[in-house]
């Protein structure tokens, strides 16, 4: 110790512990990759919920089966809403790249309305099922169904909260670099939810009706 301090005091300069010629990364340069890795971890959550549904989905406990509960017309309408919201978010990203703030806000608002319609239809479906006694407590099938579809619905809900927040941010501060980055993250999140929904309507609804 004494030797080390001696040496420093002899040199008379502060020890430097970082790489001096560290090259500079602009702020937020790694955000997109980081967010993508978050989405992948989210993907694992959904994979577990899908696996749970796959294992428990046939255990009706003498209760209602998918055929008694699901209305495919409603699910098709729901799928349409989410698909339309995906393309309108795409338009928002395109207008954002052209720095047209008004049009971006308009497309974001339309996306939000489609997302809201999706949630409304899903909640109507849930309310209808629960009214008929098909609650999460009824059977293992319904527990896993509500967990899987409900988790997706929660994601859409938080996506909507995020969307409104970013619309306020954009209205206040404009399409700054930070806001563009945030909008791109939400874009990935939103399209990712659409991908998960493909799994939901295929595994849960379509294959459920075929069972």
């Amino acid at each position: 110790m004494s030797v080390a301090t001696n040496r420093i005091s002899v040199q008379g300069s502060e020890p430097v512990f970082h790489v001096i010629d560290e090259h500079d990364h602009p702020e937020g340069a790694s955000t997109m990759l980081g967010f993508w890795i978050y989405l992948m971890s989210d993907c694992l959550i959904f994979a577990m919920l899908f696996a749970t549904y796959g294992v428990l989905g046939g255990n009706y406990a003498a209760g209602p089966a998918p055929k008694d509960l699901f209305d495919l017309k409603l699910v098709a309408l729901n799928t349409t809403m989410l698909l339309l919201s995906s393309i309108t978010y795409g338009f928002a990203m395109l207008t954002m790249e052209k720095s047209k703030i008004g049009q971006t806000q308009l497309w974001l608002a339309i996306t939000g309305l489609f997302g809201l319609a999706f949630l409304g239809i899903e909640l109507t479906e849930f309310a209808h099922m629960i009214h008929e006694g098909a609650t999460p407590q009824r059977s293992a099938f319904l527990s896993s169904f509500f967990t899987l579809v409900g988790t997706h619905g929660l994601h859409v809900t938080f996506g909507l909260v995020w969307l409104v927040t970013l619309m306020v941010q954009t209205a206040r501060f404009g399409l700054t670099t930070a806001n563009r980055r945030r909008l791109m993250c939400l874009s990935m999140f939103w399209h990712f939810l659409d991908v998960v929904w493909i799994g939901v309507f295929t595994f849960v609804y379509l294959l459920g009706m075929l069972r």
Partner: peptide, 8 residues
């Protein structure tokens, strides 16, 4: 999306 829904 339309094809699988139509099939089922």
């Amino acid at each position: 999306t339309a094809i699988p829904f139509w099939l089922v």
